[in-house]
Amino acid sequence: MKTTAPAISFHNVTLGYDRHPAVHHISGEISRGELLAVVGPNGAGKSTLLKGIVGELKPLSGSLSLDGLGKRDIAYLPQVIEIDRSFPISVFDCVAMGLWRTIGAWRGLRARDKQAVIGALRTVDLVELADRPVGSLSGGQFQRMLFARLLLQDAAVILLDEPFRAVDTRTVAELIALIERWHREGRTVLAALHDIEQVRAHFPDTLLLAREVVAWGKTPQVLTPANLAKSRTLTEAFDSHAEICERDEELERETA
């Protein structure tokens, strides 16, 4: 299903907070239909990169383009979820919001839509809990519910930030099966992960980050011991007295 058309392209993108880059000078393309793992130590800039793609964070410099895709074509599962779990809403209603693109703010759920919601719940094995309030779900069930909502969003690009935290191994296997299904359907999937073995087993492509791109390409070529060691030494803490980055100027001098 993989085509050569790019889904997301980066042109010397630097992303960060308050002038301090979390990850800088990224250039490259993610093709449509790619299944890409974003790997790196804590503080490598994985979450920042995903936030940059969904547009929650404006690049400090450089540009990022979603070729032909709008913000609404991206489904995003953040790492730190702002969801209020004590909110009185049922699992069914929460998952049904994944249909926003078809039902919008005002349209009701037709029989077909209800079937779709039940179908998504069945896929993640939560049908029996459909009428429960979301607050009664366990951590793993809650994550499966969010995956059901992603299923209904039917997005061309899916971004997952550490989607397997606090999830037992059986659930991880089920969720990975869902990700592989999305991949077969030709969707572009990016997942920020820290479990190297998991990435080796299931993700054809990998982007290894350590506040900049360490390696990017086929997973076996990226996740070499040398690259992994390099990524660990490169990731340093936020330095409040950091110098101004001169790399753009250096690049210009070299090309001139």
Partner: peptide
């Protein structure tokens, strides 16, 4: 309702 329950999701779809 969505703004109260999951504002980030609302921002991402609408």
């Amino acid at each position: 309702v969505l703004e109260c329950f999951d504002p980030e999701f609302l921002r991402s779809v609408s």
